[in-house]
């Protein structure tokens, strides 16, 4: 047994223990904290699986934004905790659930042990065309050139989720301010931290975005960091979220996917297919799409965490 495998086994056991604890612990708030820890451990697994791009996404999304979202929800729902404990299912239900879960696990495990060898891979194909896209990071090339359609649909899904969240507002708060509001002392430690951290965080976010063309990173990871910085500044009481009916907000939210669609369909004219880039212009077009998507993603991710509007818009 090599040292690397020993590390992997230790990591696996830690993750399984964390997942089991997250499921089993009685207190919901503790479960949320467990889930955040679990997400951070998963980040280490992505590094071990040679997927640093995924690791960055998991750390920013799985640990960071999802954690903030769930902590907020758990704190608000805390008063319902004791009531729902009485709903615990019967022993029979739990036994059946355990049997079903074990069966699913066993089926998946059999599949894992019988995966084809040698493994099918698209890596050579991705590498062969990398030069024509002008980007050095194959994952970015997949996201914005080979399978740009997926990325477009993803951006639209994020937007649709945001529309869904906004549509859950009360009539009286329709188009108003999301609930995220600060109670922090404007001269307190959090405000100080936000003042120091936010400028650096913005630079780090843009750096991660920019370097994604050639190294691990990219717009999703960068946008998550920028969204987190915005939420930090708001949480520290140094800024306010805009009401969701603001025109500039909605324009920026739609601009990213719109630019993506326009450039994609322009491929019909300038190149031979939808989402094909004309020769020699791939890199600038990819950059244009990414720059247009950035504000969309930053705003959408932050507003997804902030939740449905809760207060009236200004008359």
């Amino acid at each position: 047994m090599t040292l690397a495998l020993a590390v992997d086994i230790g990591l696996t056991l830690l993750i399984l223990a964390m997942a089991a604890w997250t499921i089993a612990v009685r207190d919901t708030f503790a479960s949320v904290i467990g889930f955040v820890t679990y997400g951070l451990l998963l980040t280490l697994v992505w590094v071990r699986l040679a997927a640093p791009d995924v690791a960055l996404t998991e750390a920013a999304m799985g640990g960071g934004l999802t954690g903030a979202l769930l902590i907020g929800a758990a704190a608000r729902l805390r008063s319902t905790e004791s009531a729902s404990r009485t709903e615990r299912p019967s022993v029979l239900t739990r036994t059946l659930a355990a049997v079903l879960s074990a069966a699913v696990t066993a089926a998946l495990a059999i599949c894992v042990l019988n995966l084809p060898d040698p493994a099918p891979t698209l890596a050579p194909a991705a590498a062969a065309q990398l030069g024509s896209t002008g980007v050095g990071n194959p994952v970015t090339a997949v996201l914005l050139a080979y399978r740009a359609m997926d990325t477009l649909l993803e951006a639209i899904v994020v937007l649709l989720a945001l529309v869904g969240v906004w549509s859950l507002a009360h009539d009286r708060a329709w188009g108003g301010y999301p609930q995220l509001r600060s109670h922090a002392d404007p001269d307190g430690i959090l405000a100080y931290f936000a003042r120091v951290m936010a400028p650096v965080g913005i630079i780090v976010g843009i750096y991660i975005f920019w370097i994604g063309a050639d190294f691990p990173g990219g717009k999703f990871q960068g946008a998550t960091i920028l969204a987190a910085m915005w939420l930090l500044v708001i949480g520290a009481g140094l800024a306010h979220l805009p009401p969701v009916s603001q025109t500039w907000l909605r324009v920026l939210l739609v601009a990213g996917p719109l630019v993506f669609i326009v450039i994609g369909f322009a491929g019909l004219v300038t190149a031979e297919a939808v989402f094909a880039y004309p020769n020699g212009y791939a890199k600038p077009l990819i950059l244009a799409i990414e720059i247009a998507l950035m504000p969309t993603l930053v705003l959408a991710l932050a507003l997804l965490v902030a939740g449905a509007p809760q207060r009236m818009p200004p008359q």
Binding site: A51, D53, M61, L65, V139, L143, R147, D150, T151, L160
Partner: peptide, 17 residues
């Protein structure tokens, strides 16, 4: 394989949404 890795990034963002 970079193709599944890119789809994973997409998947994580959609899961968050």
């Amino acid at each position: 394989d970079p193709v599944p890795q890119a789809l994973l990034i997409t998947g994580i963002v959609v899961a968050f949404s």
